[in-house]
Amino acid sequence: MRAERDLNMRSTINYVSAVLLTLLGLSYAAVPLYKMLCSETGLDGTPITSLGHKFEPESMVPVAGARPIRILFDSSVADTMKWKFTPETRQIHVVPGETALAFFQAKNPSDEDIVGISTYSVTPAKAAQYFNKIQCFCFEEQKLAAGEEIDMPVFFYVDPEFAYDPWMSDVKTITLHYTFFKSKYQ
């Protein structure tokens, strides 16, 4: 009787500690697991970096007969940021589906190395969903040594669906604005 109770007790302890250990392990695994989930689905603004998520090549074909859109490029720097940052291509005319390159130029005229990070906005906001950036210099910290000057490319296209969306019929110009901030981590 007593031996049986002891056995029961021991197996209960084993079960409970197994559950606890599993939960503890899962809590440590949560960070990499969430990272995987986010880079797979692009959740919460994480760039989709996992393989098999390239934009479809079929969507990067200029739409025949579509109205050209004027893309304007604009830039600014935060007050505390000592970089000079200007668009080298002021405007580009593309049709939906046509991939194009734009360049910005960043210069660090100060005598210290500065790490910067940029955000961007697209106006009008309703057109932002169609503005597909394939690759750019945003979302990552960029370090410029003292006096360094560099070309920063943006490779983009406007989604072909833009041409067929009646809500976009009055959008003739899309403005892409970049702002560079001084990074906190330096």
Partner: peptide, 8 residues
């Protein structure tokens, strides 16, 4: 707006 497809 969405982040770039291929990062930076």
């Amino acid at each position: 707006a969405t982040p770039p497809e291929r990062g930076a």
